[in-house]
């Protein structure tokens, strides 16, 4: 463990110094710079990210126990970490294994969130492209989109549930609504950052607007679009859960959270377990997007504008 930590520390230190120094400026013609991020380096950094994530989880668990001990909080408000872990193996009142029960509901929420993310991403991509095309449309549309984002979705959700029912459609709708904005902004910003000269060059080759979009603008904006997608992925899970909160919903993480909350005094661990389930689903979504980005961006990095 100790030797692992020293290695990890060294890796992080090394990466930090490299990041601040940046690539060395080259003076002579034939002296070419080292690849800024080769494939193998990207793999290595992905692995160390996983290691850091696990390490952070352990730290959170330890901090939880320390705070509980120091403040003397009782086990109803703050159950022991290991008690919560054990709870995942317990049985529900229907005689079902709790983990199975939780996963079933995570699946229901996840499905709604995934459909919503897909719909929101598609609409956001299209809006982003339209906005980047015209200053007039951008200045007219942006305030509306931003204002729509200020609507407290928790307040609107019950109305939507009455209108569309408690099924997957509502979940996908609210998830799409929340994911739409970050993807729109990321796409528009990414395309607006394309250098004017690059566009001019393609024009001199006789490229149509569509060719410019597919060969230059979208690939150029891709690293920024993945930043938007990642934010959106987490939001889509939140959106789907919010859609499950109104009265009448039958399944999903929102329902589990609500019922666990009602029985909190008798079984506080259920609520924490449900929260962990929600976190895990969000993390899986974000990691999936990051994984797709890892391959889609080749040797580039997410968020990089070149």
């Amino acid at each position: 463990m100790t030797s692992y930590l020293t290695t990890l520390g060294r890796t992080i230190r090394h990466r930090l110094t490299r990041a601040t120094r940046g690539p060395a400026p080259s003076v002579f013609e034939d002296e070419f710079e080292q690849p800024r991020s080769s494939r193998s380096e990207k793999w290595r950094s992905a692995l160390s990210e996983v290691a850091v994530a696990i390490l952070l989880l352990v730290i959170v668990a330890v901090l939880w126990e320390i705070i509980k001990l120091v403040t003397g909080t009782d086990s109803i408000k703050m159950p022991h970490v290991w008690d919560i872990v054990v709870f995942f193996g317990s049985e529900t009142s229907q005689g079902e294994n709790f983990t199975v029960f939780l996963l079933r509901n995570v699946w229901s929420t996840g499905k709604g969130a995934a459909i919503g993310l897909g719909v929101g991403a598609t609409c956001g991509l299209i809006t982003g492209i339209v906005i980047s095309r015209s200053r007039l449309i951008a200045s007219g549309l942006m305030p509306l989109i931003v204002a729509a984002q200020a609507v407290p979705i928790v307040a609107v959700a019950p109305a939507l549930v009455l209108w569309l029912g408690t099924g997957g459609t509502t979940k996908a709708m609210i998830a799409a609504y929340l994911t739409y904005f970050p993807i729109t902004v990321a796409t528009a910003r990414g395309i607006q950052a394309v250098p004017a000269d690059s566009r001019d060059l393609l024009r001199t080759y006789g490229a149509s607007n569509r060719t410019i979009l597919t060969t230059l603008e979208v690939p150029f904006a891709l690293p920024l679009m993945f930043v938007g997608l990642e934010t959106a992925a987490a939001m889509s899970v939140v959106g789907a859960i919010v859609a499950e909160l109104p009265f009448g919903s039958k399944d999903g993480l929102g329902v589990v959270i609500l019922t666990s909350w009602q029985f909190f005094i008798f079984e506080p661990r259920a609520l924490y377990a449900a929260a962990i389930g929600a976190c895990a689903l969000g993390a899986v979504f974000v990691l999936l997007i990051r994984g797709i980005g890892f391959f889609a961006l080749g040797h580039r990095r997410q968020g990089e504008v070149l």
């Binding site: 250098p195 000269d197 690059s198 001019d200 060059l201 001199t204 080759y205 006789g206 060969t215 230059l216 690939p219 150029f220 891709l222 961006l297 080749g298 040797h299 580039r300 070149l306």
Partner: peptide, 15 residues
């Protein structure tokens, strides 16, 4: 397609 253009910045596509 009778002419080509080179600008001050190379404008290569990084990907």
């Amino acid at each position: 397609r009778e002419f080509g253009v080179v600008f001050q910045s190379p404008n290569l596509l990084a990907w």
